[in-house]
Every structure is written in C-alpha cells, then in structure tokens.
C-alpha cells in the first residue's frame, strides 16, 4: 500500500480578492520508505503542495491520504523542515528540540526528552552549541537544529521544503551528506518528500523525482542508483549525466513554453 496518496488536489489562493490557481489536480503517491523529490522552477507550486501534505494548506478540491486516512491538519506523524529557519528565536537550540519532542509525544519524562534532544543534536554535529540561541548560530547550523528537532520527533514522514536552499554551496554539500547518512541510520523516518529546484540534489537524494509543470506533476523520473550513495561515485557515471540532461531539458522546455516557444539560449 502507498504511504502517501495525493489525489487530484487543486488549491486556490485568495490574494486581495483575486483568485490565484496554484495547484491543478495534482496527483502522486509515495511508497513507504521511499524518498521522492518535487522539482520544478520557482513559483510552480512546490511549497504549496508540501503545505497541503503538512496540513498547513487546505486544498479546495481533492484529498491527501496517509495510510489510507485523509489528513485535515498537521500531525505528529509528519515532520516538516522549511527553507527559512523555523526555530523559535527565544529558545536555545536544546530548548527548540525539546519543545518539538514534548509536542510530538504524550507525557515524555523530562530527563528522557533532554537526553533525546542531546542525542539528535550530536547526530547533526552540534555538540557544544546546545545552549546557543538561533541568532548566535550560522544559517547552516540553524538548519541543523531544525533537522535535529524534526528527526527527534521521530515522525514516520519527513517533509522538507528546500531545506538547503539558503545555505552556501559548501555547507549545502555537507548537509546533503549528513541527511543521507542520518536517513540511512535512522530507524524512525521512513518516507520523505523533498522539495528542491536543485537537480543534482534531487538526483543524489531521491528514489523518484516528480517534475512539476503546469501546477501538477509533469513527469516522473526514477533514479536507479543503489544505496548507500556516495556523491562522487554517482556524479561520475554516465547514468547520472543522462538523468541530469533529461531533467535539465524539462526545465528548458518549461522556460520555452512560458516565453512562447521561441528558441531559447541559456
């Protein structure tokens, strides 16, 4: 059975009395344990779709099923990491993580929550920074805390919206490897939906890539590499280059369509 089933969701934003159609009968499904990426040019509705999955956005039509049950609101079965640092500025790294743990599970003893928080902060490499406030941490470090917080809540599903989009190139690679590593070892998170506009990132991380186009899934691309994955081994293969070319051509096509079919040089 599919873990996540997105069935024909449409969503309209109301912006100053004007209706904006952001999703148009979007459908896809994700198997348990699968890592899928939503890729597409910016403004195509990736965040909106993820917002529906997380329960923050309500579709005007269609529904999302998780384990066969329709979702209506955020729930502790799903953890979300946003692009922009979503930590509470008034709490230290540790308190941010503990707050997440306390709200994900009923009545967890204080001692246990603390050691769990420490465990996950260690996992993302933040030993020694537990008592720092977000403003004292770099963007990449804040994102590590956000990841630690979400993983510590031990959700079955992880939803990530361009989590490394605002991190510099070098840190981005470090964080991608960290995520690959954590997911291989973490026994709690099983299913991931990851939003990105970075083709390399999508290929490196995903089992399947959904290319979004016209407010729905335009194309589905399987990524055949076995796990555990090692960046340099993958990036050197012909398969990788072919995949990359395929996805890039979808982007070009997209741009060409938008500007009226004229020949495009990029």
């Amino acid at each position: 059975m599919n873990k996540i089933e997105v069935i024909d969701i449409s969503l309209d934003y109301m912006d100053n009395g004007k209706r904006f159609h952001a999703l148009d009968r979007l459908s896809f499904s994700v198997k348990e344990g699968e890592f899928v990426s939503l890729i597409g040019s910016s403004g195509c509705g990736k965040s909106t779709a993820l917002g529906v999955l997380s329960g923050l956005n309500h579709p005007s039509e269609g529904k999302v099923l998780i384990d066969g049950h329709q979702i209506k609101s955020p729930g502790s079965d799903r953890g979300v990491v946003f692009q922009h640092y979503s930590l509470f500025p008034w709490m230290t790294a540790r308190c941010n993580v503990i707050l997440g743990i306390n709200h994900a599970r009923e009545k967890i003893p204080k001692r246990e929550a603390e050691s769990l928080a420490q465990e996950y902060l260690n996992k993302v490499g933040l030993e020694g920074f537990e008592n720092k406030y977000p403003y004292q941490l770099s963007g990449g470090m804040q994102q590590r805390v956000a990841i630690a917080r979400t993983l510590a809540m031990q959700p079955e599903i992880l939803l990530m919206d361009e989590p490394f989009g605002a991190v510099d190139a070098k840190n981005k690679m470090v964080l991608q490897d960290l995520l690959l590593n954590l997911l291989q070892r973490d026994e709690h998170v099983k299913t991931i939906v990851f939003v990105t506009h970075d083709v390399d990132e999508g290929i490196l991380l995903s089992d399947r890539i959904f290319f979004m186009n016209n407010k729905r899934i335009g194309q589905e691309i399987a990524v055949p590499f076995s796990r555990p994955r090692i960046r340099n081994e993958i990036f050197d293969t012909d398969e990788y280059r072919a995949l990359r070319r395929q996805i890039m051509s979808l982007f070009y096509q997209n741009v060409a369509n938008q500007i009226g079919g004229a020949e495009v040089y990029l």
């Binding site: 979300v80 979503s86 008034w90 709490m91 709200h103």
Partner: peptide, 26 residues
C-alpha cells in the same frame, strides 16, 4: 514562518500562547 513552524510541531492553542505569542511580544 514562526506560526507555520509552530503548527507543524503540533503546538495547540495554550502552547501557542506560552511558547510563541508571549515570548514573541516581550
């Protein structure tokens, strides 16, 4: 962003007041 983040953490109304709205307004 803060509100979205709080809602995905499953913080309910009482917690919203205590952990988000009050410190935010201090």
């Amino acid at each position: 962003k803060i509100m979205d983040s709080a809602r995905t953490l499953n913080i309910k109304t009482i917690g919203m007041f205590a952990y988000v709205l009050l410190p935010n307004s201090l």
